[in-house]
Write a protein that binds this DNA or RNA. Structure first.
Lengths: 164, 164
DNA sequence: CGAGTGTTGTTCAGATTCGAACGACCACTC
DNA sequence: GAGTGGTCGTTCGAATCTGAACAACACTCG
């Protein structure tokens, strides 16, 4: 709760507003991330009937050793609540793209496993998705911008990780 | 529909995968934007009972001439569907932070107007919100990174705007 | 003018999300 | 080896979001 106290005192004594540059950066980030999210969602829905979270689950699983991962870890990687992941894995299970397996080392644990069908689905869908990411973000950026953005995002990610 | 045709041909003939740098940039962007979104949502809910979209509506209205704006334009600026905006404006109206007014120039139109109470609510909440944006994003970035990010986001925004 | 076309905002049904509460299990201590 | 605090995944209720359908109005062009 430290951060809230700090915010409070700051807000009372000295609200450090964003200057023009900072505001522009924040607004651009916010606006673009939401807009891009919508576009991605739209494209995935159109070509595969998948939501973006569902697609991300498939991607993360496909990169995991054995194409499987514990629910909690998966939820962290996809940035979704535990209950949200349960819901989506249920969906994906019904679609036959993912299966559940009991975790050998932990009786409480559940492993989400990418099925063969899931792997093929991902293979089919990924190129089109990547193309969208390219068309609107990656291909528009210089190498310097790419590095700067990565560095910036990493720093933020670090702060958000450590404080949660 | 040009873009889908293009994606299709590309996906069949030559899926241009992301290299390590590009993938890192995209992953970092995706992960961080979702994580930051969650943090912001959490903070706004805690101190004001507002969702992030609701807060954004107040901000955009407060910056508009006469603290009022047409529904469609507002929906574009906040990046939310028309029906989503209707829902949120209803909520904000119940809370007394926003009012609806008939549009003088267009009988179909509806103006969302920030109330005095809405203005005070925003004044009260904004510093804490800005502090979160600072703490996790703005203050962690160098001036160069800030500019690079803004430039990158603007380019993407431009593409997304023009194609919709 | 008047038909045709497009826009505006709302309603509706359905899907998705979250947090809180829960039962089950793990790890550690005495 | 029972107790205790913590973790795991699910369930549940409530809130939110979207796209499609709709009615009302605006605009264009013959």
């Amino acid at each position: 709760m430290f951060k809230f106290e700090r915010q409070y005192t700051v807000s009372v004594t000295d609200p450090r507003w964003l200057d023009t540059t900072e505001m522009a950066a924040w607004r651009a980030f916010l606006f673009t991330s939401h807009l891009l999210e919508r576009r991605i969602e739209e494209q995935l829905k159109a070509v595969a009937g998948l939501t973006h979270p569902q697609y991300e689950i498939l991607v993360v699983l496909s990169e995991a050793p054995g194409q499987q991962m514990r629910m909690t870890e998966l939820a962290r990687d996809v940035v979704v609540s535990k209950s949200g992941l349960t819901y989506q894995v249920n969906r994906l299970e019904k679609a036959g793209l993912v299966e559940r397996a009991t975790c050998p080392s932990d009786e409480r644990g559940v492993l989400a496993v990418l099925t063969e069908r899931g792997r093929r689905c991902l293979e089919r869908v990924a190129p089109g998705h990547v193309e969208v990411v390219r068309a609107y973000l990656i291909d528009r950026l210089s190498r310097d911008e790419l590095h700067a953005m990565t560095s910036a995002m990493r720093k933020t990610e670090e702060g958000l990780r450590s404080s949660v």
